[in-house]
């Protein structure tokens, strides 16, 4: 098969794979951004058993490889409890991958949030209190934006890492873009022994991360009006 005949087949397969990559990315963000905030509140809780428990969980999740977490979350229920809770097929794999990524990234995000919240001077909260604002009003009207400004740089770092980390999900056979690229090495759709599709997947990551970098740059600039 000539190169020009391979091109459309390879691109179609890579596009399908990258759609999975994007799906995992956005679902992870959607879950991990709010969950991370809850975890950060929990880790700052004055109720010691709760904050202790959460700190231990965060330590375990941040201290062990995401690849192992994927294997454990996907295979453990079936292996140990004889009950595969994920069902069969692609959807189960996606769900398990999404849960692993959300938990993992929520823990990373929680630490960034904690830094952000604690980075807002206590006086801000007190100023809100003496003006008679309630706790949630203080958080949303005063603390939140200051926190966001502080966490944008570390967050953008972490989110760009997330884009690339999605490729780890192929350990549980989630067919993301690198899986799709690798398939042409072993042979798929009549094309075999081709290495270039695998390398070409990097272009997808670069393009998408380029867009993200631009967006984060814009956000940072937008928040630069105050200190």
């Amino acid at each position: 098969m000539s190169f020009s005949q391979q091109l459309p087949i390879v691109f179609e397969a890579l596009n399908v794979g990258f759609l999975q990559t994007l799906k995992l990315f956005f679902v992870t963000l959607l879950g991990a951004l709010p969950l991370g905030l809850l975890i950060s509140f929990g880790s700052m809780s004055k109720f010691k058993p709760l904050s202790g428990l959460i700190k231990t969980v965060v330590w375990i999740v941040r201290g062990s490889p995401l690849m192992i977490q994927l294997l454990i979350i996907y295979y453990f229920p079936g292996l140990v409890f004889q009950n595969n809770i994920w069902g069969s097929g692609e959807n189960g794999r996606f769900l398990a991958a999404a849960v692993s990524f959300i938990i993992n990234y929520a823990c990373y995000f929680s630490e960034i949030y904690r830094g952000g919240i604690q980075g807002v001077p206590k006086g801000q909260q007190e100023a809100g209190q003496v003006l008679g604002l309630k706790k949630n009003q203080i958080f949303f009207k005063i603390t939140l934006l200051q926190m966001i400004k502080q966490i944008v740089p570390p967050m953008s770092n972490e989110i760009i890492t997330l884009v690339k980390d999605t490729s780890l999900a192929r350990i549980i056979a989630l067919q993301e873009v690198i899986w799709a690229g690798e398939a042409f090495m072993k042979g798929s759709n009549g094309i075999s022994g081709q290495i270039w599709p695998l390398f070409f997947t990097a272009v997808y990551y670069l393009a998408f991360n380029g867009i993200l970098t631009l967006l984060f740059g814009k956000l940072e600039k937008k928040l630069s009006y105050f200190k």
């Binding site: 001077p121 006086g123 801000q124 007190e126 100023a127 005063i142 934006l145 200051q146 400004k149 105050f226 200190k227």
Partner: peptide
Amino acid sequence: VFQSFNLFPQ
């Protein structure tokens, strides 16, 4: 009125 003002910076 606080010693360090504590105005909301945003």
